[in-house]
Amino acid sequence: MNIFRFFGDLSHLASIFILIHKITTTRSCRGISFKTQALYVTVFVTRYLDLFTSYVSLYNTVMKIFFIASSCYILYLMRVRYRPTNDPSIDTFRLEYLVGPCVVLALIFNYGYNPTELLWSFSIFLESVAILPQLFMLQRTGEAETITTHYLAALGAYRALYIPNWIYRYFSEGYVDPISVTAGLVQTGLYLDFFYVYFTKVLQGQKFELPA
């Protein structure tokens, strides 16, 4: 554990709390992609299956349980409690374009041909593109509530912080995980456009609006 990874994980936790706060205080999940949230449940469940087989640390176990539970809770909020505020007609990204290639990539790039490793690898690839339905929705509507942009910024910061974490681990432990690093770089790259607008507009007190 190093400071980059720790703050990355905190940022990830913060993003989830911001999202739950947004949905429950506005009593609406407007602007949030259900597809992206469903993909995160898939990511966490497939990756954290090792909860039952390998123990890393109490921190690790608690975080895994939290991520699975909170992502399921968000789906419940969107699908049941605040269902009328969820508008599927603007959440139109085709999931098969994401899931299909991730299955293929996992079959090619993995650390072992067994169910746990294949699902782990699949979850890494899927996480790297899981935000796309959300970003696509943002692009379509051209604007977002400020709280939603804070959620995305915290999520992007989590990914960005994992990069110095890997650099640090390479020098301190000689540890390199090429699958995580490659997928992580792609994932962080997807946030670059968003971050540009976030820094130049939202943090200057303006509304998040994309140029027409």
Binding site: R5, D9, V56, M63, K64, Y111, E117, V176, I179
Partner: peptide
């Protein structure tokens, strides 16, 4: 081999 470290990242 990264898998031997049992994927300690979240």
């Amino acid at each position: 081999d990264p898998s031997s470290q049992s994927h300690d990242e979240l």
